[in-house]
Amino acid sequence: MADTDFNAQVRETILHLLAEANRVPFLFVGSGMSRRYMGAEDWDGLLKWVCENAGSPMKPYFQYKLTAESEGDGKKNTVYPHIASLMERDFLDAINQPKFADWVETHRAEFESGISPMKIYIADHLSSFQPTLMTEELDILRKATRHVAGVITTNYDGLMESVFPKYDVYIRQEDLLFSPLMGIGEIYKIHGSATDPSSMVINER
């Protein structure tokens, strides 16, 4: 089957299901969206980026990954937090390098309040990404605002906020549990947000 035929079939199937449901859909957005429109990494890629950029005494990423896989149950949703926990110990030593001196001073108050330096390092990295790829597709999605009830995303970045700027954003679990949610015009960042590094679900803790 040609790609165009397949795409048309998928489109028709989705339109049929939406018409049958007779309600406005919620979008579930994973790292594929951020990779496509901003060139950002997925969870695995972010952890690898930390290893490659932090420097000594960080080990090559594959060592953390193999250790975590050998110590865990092999499930993706538990292996990455375990990898991050292993990495954090070495990252704390890595930031003693002179190249981190200004960065540490900038974030000292956050570290002293108990926020993980590695989470802040990742959040800073993610803040450099902007939706500059395939912008014509994003423009179409922006125009569909009134046809999208809300967004649930595992991404830390601000892509969805840039697409739906008028939607209310909920980041922390307590926001979801104790806020008067409307169920429409809302973005639920269930793994936290780079705008609040302490909220980011990365390690086992």
Rank of each mutant, 00 (worst) to 15 (best):
V201D: 02
V163L: 04
D102W: 08
P180Y: 11
G192W: 00
M134S: 15
R108P: 09
K99F: 07
V104G: 08
E174K: 13
Y188R: 05
M182D: 12
K166N: 14
R142A: 06
K189G: 00
P98K: 07
P180M: 14
V151F: 01
M134I: 10
V104Y: 11
L141F: 03
F178L: 12
T135Q: 13
L159T: 02
Y156G: 02
D168R: 12
F129K: 05
S193T: 03
N155G: 06
S162P: 08
N203C: 12
L141P: 01
G150Y: 00
A123S: 08
I171G: 00
L92Q: 13
R172H: 13
I115E: 08
S116D: 09
E137V: 09
E110R: 11
Y167N: 01
K99M: 10
K143V: 07
L181Y: 00
M182A: 14
N203Q: 11
S113G: 10
T145C: 09
A94L: 04
N155V: 06
Y167R: 00
L133V: 09
A194K: 02
F91A: 01
S113F: 07
P180S: 15
L133C: 10
H107Y: 11
D157K: 02
I140A: 11
E136W: 14
T106D: 13
L177G: 08
V151G: 01
G114S: 09
M182S: 15
E110H: 09
Q97G: 15
M134Y: 12
S128R: 13
F178C: 15
M118Y: 02
A94Q: 02
T153Y: 01
K189C: 01
P117A: 05
F178N: 14
V104L: 07
V148S: 01
E105T: 10
L181I: 06
D139F: 03
S198P: 04
M200R: 01
S128W: 09
Q97R: 14
P197D: 06
V169L: 07
F100D: 07
D157A: 04
T106P: 07
E161H: 12
S198F: 07
P165E: 09
S128A: 13
G183H: 10
V151H: 00
S198D: 13
Y188E: 02
K143M: 10
A149S: 12
T154Q: 08
K99V: 13
